[in-house]
Amino acid sequence: MSENAIISVRHLSKDFGSNRVLRDVDFEVHEGDVTCIIGASGSGKSTLLRCINLLEKPSGGEILFHGSPIAGHGFDPCGYRAKVGMCFQSFNLFNNMSVLDNCIAGPVKVQKKSREEAKKLAMFYLEKVGMAPYINAKPRQLSGGQKQRVAIARALAMQPEVLLFDEPTSALDPQMVGEVLSVMRTLAQEGLTMIVVTHEMAFAKDVSTHVVYMADGVICEEGTPEEIFEHPKEARTKEFLERFTNR
């Protein structure tokens, strides 16, 4: 295990009551990595991401951020979450705020930036995701793809070290998937560290630097996109990928 990992997940387990959802999950994310997590529904992908962002409390094992555990006394979960962004399947934009205010809220309230500075940042990232024209809109006035792009800009405005995506395109109509993926592709090319849970195999294959295949709460196989998609070793990985490519 190398020293300079941004996030290291070690022997992570998570129980919901008697239901063990994650078992001994081990993996690392380095700067600039685009890690795609693939796997069937219910295999624990979301739970893993939510543990990394502390939306769920791990039951066992540990998660290290730059080598220090993200738990225990004196650890500030809010400060940590400000550095690790997250985009959700259902966007979770603040319904009571305009697009611009959605992107400004974090920098102003959490990072205590001035409104001016936050606005500049927000505009920069809204421009990047192509949503600058919509700064006055409320979330309910946007399409799904537009909402997700705003959600990405909101996360980016915090200038996170790592950005987590939980099936960002799963709630979208097919014609909107492309606009979101293209934004994510750009971010990956610019070197943003990302962990992406996705069912978009083409995206995982082209964009990621590392692919993790999860099944039943364990990491079944991981490796480079070539290793996973061209020469999978495990039978279950092969089966899973076949089901996806035959669709």
Binding site: C78, F88, N92, N96, A105, V110, A151
Partner: peptide, 25 residues
Amino acid sequence: PGQTEGAMAIGMNHFQTMTSVILPQ
């Protein structure tokens, strides 16, 4: 609950989440 999670994900604490996201709605 997604509203709360969205707020938590950008680092807001309980008080900030309540005053700027939940209570207005």
